[in-house]
Amino acid sequence: MIRGWRLFFEEITKITRFSLRFFRSVFKLPLDVNELFRQCYSIGYKSFPLVAITGFIMGLVLTIQSRPTLAEFGAESWLPAMVSVSIIREIGPVITALIFAGKVGSGIGAELASMKVTEQIEAMEVSGMNPFKYLVVTRIIATTLMLPILVIAADAIALYGGYMGVNLKANVNIHLFFSSVFDKLCFMDIFPALIKTVFFGFAIGLIGCFKGYHSGKGTQGVGESANYSVVFASLSVFIIDMMAVQITSLFL
C-alpha cells in the first residue's frame, strides 16, 4: 500500500518535471516549424475522418434517444436546442477528446517508446540535437492546437447528425433547425467548452509523450507505454472536465 502511494507520487513528480521542461523548451528558439506542421497534419488532419464519423453518430443517436422523453412532455420543439447545448457544452468535447486520446495518445506513446527502445532518441541526443524539442515539444503543441479544431468540426457534424435525427420522424427545414440551435446557444456555452479542449489536448499530448519518452525496455515497454498513454490520457480528460465544469459554474 505504502509502496503504491510512493510510486504514485514519484510518477506525479516525474510528469510535473516533464511538463516544466516542456514550458522551458517551448519558448526557446529555434522551434522546428516544419516538424510542427507535419505533426499537426498527422495528428489533426488524419484524425478528422474518425472524429467526423463519431460526431455524426453522436448527434444522430442523441437526437433519436432524446425524442421520446421530450415527446412525453410535448416538448419536441425543444429537441434542437437540447441536443445542441448537450453536444457543444459537454458531449462533443469529451467524446472527441476520448477518441483523440485513443488514437493520438496511444500513437504518440507507442512511437516514442519504440524510438526509445531502438536507441533512436539516444542517437538524436548524442548528435547534439535536442530530441525533447524535436519530438516532445512539437507533438504537445500539435495536440493542443488540433484538438480544439477537431472539436469544433465534430460539434458541427454532430449538429448535422442531430438535424438528420430530427428529420427521421419529422420534416424540419435545415434553416429552422439551425436557427433553433443558435437561438438557445450563448457565449458561455461555447467559450468554456472550447477552452477546456485546449487543456484536454495538452494533457493527451503530454501524457503520450511522457509515457513514450520514459518507456521501459523491449516490446513489452512499447505496449505498456501505448496502453498507459490511453488510460491516463482518458482519465485526465475526465478530471479536467470535472474541474472545468466546477470553474464554469462559478460564472453562471
Binding site: 531502438t118 536507441e119 533512436q120 542517437a123 548524442v126 548528435s127 535536442n130
Partner: peptide
C-alpha cells in the same frame, strides 16, 4: 549545461550497435 553539452556532442560521432537509424 544542456546547450554547451550539445555543442560539444556535435564534435563527436557515435555509431550505435543497432545503427539506430530513424525508421520513419
Amino acid at each position: 549545461g544542456e546547450d554547451d553539452l550539445n555543442l560539444l556532442r556535435k564534435k563527436v560521432g557515435f555509431l550505435f550497435q543497432s545503427a539506430a537509424l530513424y525508421d520513419s
